[in-house]
């Protein structure tokens, strides 16, 4: 009786292994069609990231070097890790009035967790997420970025 059970065990073992090997064998024969890996640095030209991909926060400027940021600090308040720091200044208008504007929009990429809360909070859509993702640098200070371009000013009509 022991011998019968033993042979039964061996046969069922072989059968179960063959079932698994059948799947492996199928993939061995169809490996060309089923290729799913991507060769990352080589496919850089064809790599398309979805438009909602959260790579880093950027501030889009138009052709007149104008942005839409009013310096309301809503993003600064929404950020959970103090990634954004806005330094404001007062511009003198042609009619002599003072107007608040951003001096520096400091963005610490090294602190950012890409939670998208600042983009949600922005009332004027001045900032958005970019699709860049290669952020490695040799010096940590390079990750602190000033998002508004030098000499840029706020677009007309945005309050």
């Amino acid at each position: 009786m022991f011998l019968v059970n033993y042979i039964k065990d061996v046969l069922s073992g072989i059968k179960s292994l063959a079932t698994g090997m059948k799947v492996t064998g199928w993939y061995a024969l169809h490996h060309r069609k089923e290729k799913i890996t991507q060769q990352y640095p080589d496919n850089k030209d064809t790599l398309v990231l979805p438009e909602r991909f959260r790579g880093e926060v950027v501030m889009p400027h138009d052709e007149h070097n104008e942005h839409a940021c009013t310096g309301c600090t809503a993003c600064e308040l929404a950020c959970p890790n103090a990634t954004i720091k806005i330094v404001t200044k007062f511009d003198i208008q042609p009619d002599g009035k003072k107007k608040k504007a951003i001096d520096k929009f400091v963005y610490h990429l090294e602190l950012c967790t890409f939670c998208n809360l600042c983009i949600e909070a922005c009332p004027t859509d001045a900032i958005k997420m970019a699709q860049t993702f290669e952020h490695s640098v040799f010096d940590r200070t390079n990750l602190t970025k000033i998002l508004n371009k030098p000499g840029s000013k706020i677009r007309e009509g945005i309050e």
Binding site: L49, R52, R54, N116, M129
Partner: peptide
Amino acid sequence: MEETCGTRLTMNYMVPGGVMVDVH
């Protein structure tokens, strides 16, 4: 997930009152 939420693992897609943006 990447297409709809923007990230692959820690999405932060849900906000009090619903979801952040509509699905892709």
